[in-house]
Design a protein around this nucleic acid. Structure first.
Length: 134
DNA sequence: GCCAACGTTGGC
DNA sequence: GCCAACGTTGGC
């Protein structure tokens, strides 16, 4: 199983929206690096859900329930979506500041490449972030 | 609201 | 195919 982190502006689509909807297709990715990450997601992979801009915190855990397929919001065949389902909201959001202050997380893409919207996490980084939410 | 980072576009 | 110009993202 792999681990990932996706970003969303909560004013566009928040983790609470995902909880309300149960699951959703993750659309709007228009960046090749992020798209390639979507294509590597497998059913059952865990995906941390990060709120950008205002909150700047990881707020919940979701999982992949359907692997990549053509983005239904465009005819452009370059772009794909995956289906994500809410799994568990974190008791306490883990903020970007906390992540940056954690030495073992200084190498993750969230910190190093702030504009990437879909990124892989290794299991250690994933578990560390989840631990920090307790 | 500013601006750095960085991806994309288009002229040559 | 290079690179300057431009647009967008997202942290501050």
């Amino acid at each position: 199983m792999n681990h990932w982190l996706v970003k969303s502006e909560p004013s566009e689509y928040s983790y609470d929206d995902l909880v309300k909807d149960g699951s959703t297709y993750w659309d709007g990715v228009r960046n090749y690096a992020a798209r390639n990450n979507l294509k590597n997601m497998k059913v059952g992979d865990k995906v941390l859900f990060y709120h950008s801009v205002k909150e700047k915190a990881v707020v919940g855990i979701s999982k992949v329930v359907k692997e990549h397929y053509q983005d239904p919001t465009t005819d452009d065949q370059r772009w794909v979506v995956v289906d994500l389902a809410a799994e568990k909201k974190l008791k306490k959001p883990v903020t970007l500041g906390e992540i940056k202050a954690e030495p073992s997380l200084s190498d993750i893409a969230l910190v190093r490449q702030s504009r990437l919207s879909v990124m892989p996490l290794d299991a250690a980084a994933y578990n560390r972030i989840v631990d920090m939410s307790h």
